[in-house]
Amino acid sequence: MKTEHLLFWVAVGLYGLSACSYIFGLISKQDKLFSLGLYSALAGFIPHVLVIALRWMATGISPFITISESITFGMFSAVLIFLVFEFTNKKVRPLGVLVMPVAFVLMGWAGTLMKDAATQLAPALQSAWIWVHIIGAATGFGAVLTAAGIGLMYLLKEKNSGGIYGKLPDTQTLDNLAYRFVAGGFILYGLMIVSGAFWSNQVKGSYWAWDPVEVWSLISWLTYGIYLHLRITFGWRGKKLAWYSLIAMIAMIISYWGIPFTMETFHQGFRIEH
């Protein structure tokens, strides 16, 4: 087994341990299990970073192109945002109960799809816009995944009191936190769409062509645009938006990795037919 594969599965294993710790911590209301979950997520993040670095160094090509690489990088951003948030704001300790199982499942799926690193980058992908586009997409996903996790915390806090729930911030704070992450994600999705439009314009001379992936990115953006509209204009707060962010999260996973990479689109790279 290659070092790269070994490290990848170590990261998946540690994320699995983290996910289980968070879930059992929530069921048994054991605070210590959240600490185990957090530190195993941190431990898993190290081989996760190393896998990306090793693939990158092996060929010199940014490893964000295939579906497996795309998920790996998306989860890198999500876990990074989660860890930074957890170590800077220690009040939402059970947050990993949503973030880490998602990271574990998606990373496991990415592992089954993993191929050797590409030896050359398709000509259409040789553009500086790809960097802005990928970073916007991955960090946007990380932000809305965290928002969905906070939404879940809101719903749990609202139904339960005392114990681990007593240590969570009040519902209004959770609601505001989720809103901030959604607003951040909305901007990052905006960055993803704008850079994608410029990239498409560089290659095809048109910034928008209703390509399935373009439409999916618009769906992501509109989904959170509607969230912000409901909150700012219609005064929605709390429970309804917490549910909205959780349901939107499922749509985001399908939007990112469920459909675009299974269809013949611009994102599979240009084929020169001669």
Binding site: P212, V215, W216, L218, I219, T233, F234, I259
Partner: peptide, 29 residues
Amino acid sequence: SVKLALGLLIVILVCCIAGVTIYRDKRAW
């Protein structure tokens, strides 16, 4: 009307979802 704005956003969202699930590519176009 802000309700019209929200309604239009939802209609566009539904159309987009239909355009990448029920109908695809040329048919969606």
